[in-house]
Design a protein around this nucleic acid. Sequence first.
RNA 1: GCCUGGGUGGCGGAACGGGUAGACGCAAGGGACUUAAAAUCCCUCGGGGUUCGCCCCGUGCCGGUUCGAGUCCGGCCCCAGGCACCA
Length: 844
Amino acid sequence: MINFSVKIMTTYIGVSMPPRYEPRRVEEKWQKIWAERRLFEATEAPSRPKYYVLEMFPYPSGRIHMGHVRNYSIGDVVARYKRMRGFNVLHPMGWDAFGLPAENAALARNLHPAKWTYDNIDYMRGQLKELGYSYDWPRELATCDPDYYRWEQLVFLEMFRRGLAYKKKAPVNWCPKCETVLANEQVEGGLCWRCDSEVSLKELEQWFFKITAYADELLADLDRLSHWPERVLTMQRNWIGKSTGAEILFPLKDGGDPITVFTTRQDTLWGATFMSLAPEHPLALSLAQGTSQEAAVRDFVEHWRAQDRSRGVLEELTKEGVFTGRYCRNPVTGWDMPIYVANFVLMEYGTGAVMAVPAHDQRDFEFARKYDLPIKVVIQPPGEELRAEDLQAAYEDEGTLVDSGEFTGLASAAAKEAIAAFLEKESRGRRAVHFRLRDWLISRQRYWGAPIPIIYCEKCGLVPVPAKDLPVQLPLDVQISGEGGSPLARLASFTDVPCPVCGGPGKREVDTMDTFVESSWYFLRYACADYQEGPLDKNRVDYWLPVDQYIGGIEHAVLHLLYARFFTKVLRDLGLARIDEPFTRLLTQGMVLKDGAKMAKSKGNVVDPDDMIQAYGTDTTRLFLLFAAPPERDLEWSDQGVLGGHRFLHRLWTLAQNLLPAIKEAAPYQGPGADLPAALGDFRQKVHQTIQKVTADIEDRFHFNTAIAAVMELINAFYQAAEDHSREEKAPAVFREALEAVLKLLYPIVPHITEELWENLGYNTSLQLAPWPEPQAEALVETARTVVIQINGKVRSRIVVAASMSDQHLQDAAINDPVIQKWLQGQPPKRVVVARGKLVNIVI
RNA sequence: GCCUGGGUGGCGGAACGGGUAGACGCAAGGGACUUAAAAUCCCUCGGGGUUCGCCCCGUGCCGGUUCGAGUCCGGCCCCAGGCACCA
């Protein structure tokens, strides 16, 4: 007979006092052991199933913040869990190391951006190691390393060769504070994504990646990303913005090239009564030439050019326009349509010319009312008859065509198809698809980025740097003056090079690449970070990719995640990878808030991970972050909550230490269960139910909060069982089985404390190498169950019955329950419903 | 305006095939231990009523379907995020 009542042990101060839980000691010990044993370094093993889990790599801004800790803790749980499930897990980490903050810091503190960046990396790497993440450190990479960006330059050259990287003059977004241009994706609500400055338009010659060549595939493949959050898919779909319609030719009344418009509503063609051109449209001025409207049009266009085109202003702008003095002809009605220049027509979208259908487009409607232009109804809504003179607003929905020649009577959808076919047959137009997505502007007028490997030669023009001359190294001997313009332009030793083709004088491109280019392929490079023969080692990339689980913030829904998808497809087409999509599953974790607001230095509500580690340890910090909310939701930081997590780990530690003397020599119970007394059997059932629940919560949903709650429940029951049933003969075996299960279930979440307790149990191999526990069917079999009895849907009683009881017997038992008898008052029930053997509803 | 989420105790959150609303934790209140405090342990903890058996109400609002609705359907309100003259 044994006795290890927890209560006695905890209050008895004697020689066998168990060791105290000292998080820092335990954590440092195990971090050292993991590193020595190289436990997390992955090698390709084609015979084993692989699992690639990745968290978005950080910008080395100086310190790891709580948002990072949350992000990486989620990833670490997945990595450790999958290893226990037998997967060959790749879990790398690196640094998104190019970027503007390095230049700003250089200015503010007179430090070289490289020095600042690498110092930050060193500090933050130390933090990540203290946090105990199971990274494959030998694969670590920093994108500012020439060994990394040289391959990016090679890919650029290949893209250039194929016309996927090109230079053009275009109106581009300019951030005055960052003193550089921005891609469309990097302008959020008219403001710079990084510094919130108002962005203006500048006409500049810039480098672009032809992402629009992949627009269709980028859109279509979203349907294959069934494990991405719906809102990210929606945001990408909106961003790509595919519109299916037709281009239609409108002949000019008095000759010349016809005007081409794009419309998605060719079913309203019979209602087109005038034409609107964008002010930038080349025809705007040329058409007006020689008419009485010439001066008016010139005024209007010039006024438009001077117009402040920042977002706020454009939104308030009223719809205005000016007649050009010329007419075109509606190709189907033959009507003369006056041609206007209108301030709401965008040159960047479609063809810059719009057929105006005032009855069925609100903008055209307002414009027509203002300038007294004809309105003609050609679409009738169901069950109603619109008349042009009564219209208060345009009818923009679909309906039935009227007054539309041979197409009258068709529904809009059918008419669109029929009219498109008709236009093609008559050579007056064609089916067409337009996208909102614009090409990706990748040049930046900044220093701390990857140089674009191009040389300008007066004789040969644009010359790619030969592959053998790569990398084009970013020179380190620059003065960061903050005077605007790239410092590279002032560095003759960098710019002045001979033309690789003719040997004559050449000048290097001084713009650098958008840092989003580096993050568009780092996840591929991790598969072969040491590869020196090219950007990617195809064998290893084919083994590891795609990333099975990607985890990061929602803020990259359109930015990084769209660029990375594009780049993956490009690399595939270059023969460097065989995947179509880089990330099979995506988890967008919520923000870490304090006092309802995002943690920020300016708000003074920052909780520093270093302080948490010092005070409570990394296990407690991880536990709190994983327990306080499901990962995709925002998480409110709570110092009290952290304390609660810490308390739980103490409880676990104390329980284990107190059980240890009695169970150390015991073998874990293995079944069959029939020989256990009822109470121990119930406890063992709880253990296996918990295994089942935790496995499902982690595997299917990543709901670590409920997984942790389930283990907490088990620990509570464990204390009770240890108190009540420790004298049973089988108790040591059952408790050992239970404790081992608890340690395994908690290991991915709090790896250090569980490793220590696992070792205390007498094991000398890492818990990481132990298999994930399986719930045993025999332990889950219920002998009795509680059944809820309702009267008219309200719970009135509960009875405990044999698990084997049939629905019919259950029904009888329910009706015979004394409480229910009282409710029935001798009347027979009208109806009885038995649900899943767990509930009986009696209708009276 | 459109799209996507979401509204559940004092708080974070559970309830994942319509079937016990509030698991787990935090805070709060009471008690045990202690000279005392901390730590720990036990009890209570949605609102109202109560003969202490229970009863009534309750998941943003209104209505519906159903034996039964936090969950499904229709209409509305509010919050967060995204897009926004895209023809």
